[in-house]
Nucleic acid binder design. Structure first.
Lengths: 190, 190
DNA sequence: GGGTTTCTTGAGCGATCACTCAAGTATATA
DNA sequence: TATATACTTGAGTGATCGCTCAAGAAACCC
């Protein structure tokens, strides 16, 4: 009896993620989404319920992909190798809609309003930090960095540096590659 | 013949700066400004012309204060002392409406839209970077850091780190003081 | 093919957006 | 005090906001 939707829900979420990522929460209107996703208002609300719900789905997708790609990188290059490669990788990725971190942009935009999405972004940032801390711990276990460092503290500093790097990478007057190199070089001195 | 305005224009700009700083460009409505600045629409537009014009004034004020306070700090503590003190100082300043940098927030929000205010924010960030580079140069001249570093490169990395720190300082799950210490400690190893 | 169920469509909802302007009010000079 | 000149007020502009819903179209099961 039922009829299948004509769209690919997962693909729409990914597309919405890129739009929100670039233009932000307030900067993306329903009209924008309807035009880009090729959905009329009725279909949009049948599929996702609300703009905020779709944003939350997009944010979750973004965060999951972030952790997953970091894990994949660690399998290739080892924990320290992954941590050293990530800064360069993130600013060189030309397929990204924008260099800055979507979690950071969301948090910066909505935190002052106590918006639910800001809390979600923070939660996802904690997951990412935990992922970094795991890698630092494994790097210590492997003897790649000195054991007298707190992995959580290293992870927090590293995450903070990455946020700064990725925001700086949006500036066309900045040589972000140099900053990325310097961040990676610092990891060798641990 | 004329009649003086009943408001203090400079104070209103400072107040608007704090509101924009906290809530962003799209997140601040004319209604918000009229309520907080206690101006009816007519007075608002007579005084400032448009929301964007006031935002530009607020941004300029923010940037000027930033450079000025860095210069003052350098007179007290010397170039390297100022650079080392700034991370801690910026996250401990309890009078600030928010920890994150207003230039960074503006740039992140509006750059994808090619908004004039994003270009202005970038220009002000260049001024700030130049200020940092001057301090690094002076620290080299004073023999406080090794001469084999490019001051502009150091300034860019430093500014990037500060942006990350200040964004991280908004997270209540993060010990920003530790990150600030680590940034300052790195300067001693130059 | 008939009947059922879902998806698609798009006009339009009330609220809010940035902004305007004519009328009223207060203060300066003469 | 009279007049000229601003400043203040707030109702109201058209546009856009996120969102609703009734009607029509399409795909499934029997």
């Amino acid at each position: 009896m039922p009829r299948k939707p004509s769209y690919d829900r997962d693909a729409l979420i990914a597309q919405a993620r890129d739009i929100f990522w670039r233009h932000g929460w307030a900067g993306t209107s329903l009209k924008d989404l309807e035009r880009e996703l090729k959905l009329k208002p009725g279909s949009f609300y049948a599929a996702f319920g609300s703009k905020d719900t779709l944003y939350a789905l997009a944010l979750e997708r973004y965060a999951q992909d972030g952790v997953a790609s970091m894990r994949t990188l660690a399998e290739e290059l080892g924990p320290l190798g992954a941590l050293k490669a990530q800064p360069r990788r993130v600013i060189e990725a030309s397929e990204l809609p924008t260099k800055a971190c979507m979690l950071a942009k969301t948090f910066a935009e909505l935190q002052a309003k106590d918006h639910d999405l800001a809390a979600q972004a923070r939660t996802h940032m904690v997951s990412m930090k935990t992922c970094f801390a795991d890698l630092f711990r494994r790097a210590q276990d492997a003897g790649e960095i000195a054991p007298d460092h707190d992995p959580d503290r290293l992870a927090l500093r590293y995450q903070s540096d990455l946020l700064g790097l990725r925001l700086s990478a949006e500036r066309d007057d900045v040589n972000a590659a140099e900053i990325a190199e310097d961040i990676a070089a610092d990891l060798d001195r641990l």
